[in-house]
Amino acid sequence: MMTAFKWPWQYDFPPFFTIQKSLATKDKQLEAWARLVIDYAQHNKIYSLDIAEATTSELFNNQKLNRRLSTDGVNTILTYLEQKKLIEFTDSGRTRFHIFWRRPDAWASKIYDWAVENAFLNTPLTLYEITHGDDTANQSFHNLEREILMKALTCLEEQRRAQLLNIGGENEGVKFL
């Protein structure tokens, strides 16, 4: 059971929904927005979002205050997040993006630690097993999106701690080394 998301104080502060003109203030504001977006995504286990969807979601709309961040404002924040490498657009039209509330390398070490603890080294595992298997039900990367999982595993492969198997084929898998 998920506990209710605890909104930061900024969420109830009307100026939060106007991109500030003063640069120093704007920096602080964007910082706060970035943290909110990441925390919100982490709390709700959101791995990717559609911009149109995001713009209308409660994240950028405070109905209690009757304030919403404008489309331009959302773009500003996403650009900021992109610069901080906290999100990544998945298409050239910039309509969808991944949210890395954990960086792919952070995911990678989580997954590797789990594999070591459970003695899965040198054992081929399917990708499905890792994200949807019973063994990982309690892990933070349960239900992790495939594309992010792939990024994490690619990371491990570069570190020579994993080998990807049959990618693109029927039984996609990975072997931790």
């Binding site: 100026p15 106007t18 500030q20 003063s22 304030r67």
Partner: peptide
């Protein structure tokens, strides 16, 4: 500009 107040444009 001096960073003492901030705007709410609604």
């Amino acid at each position: 500009e001096a960073g003492l107040i901030c705007r709410d444009d609604s």
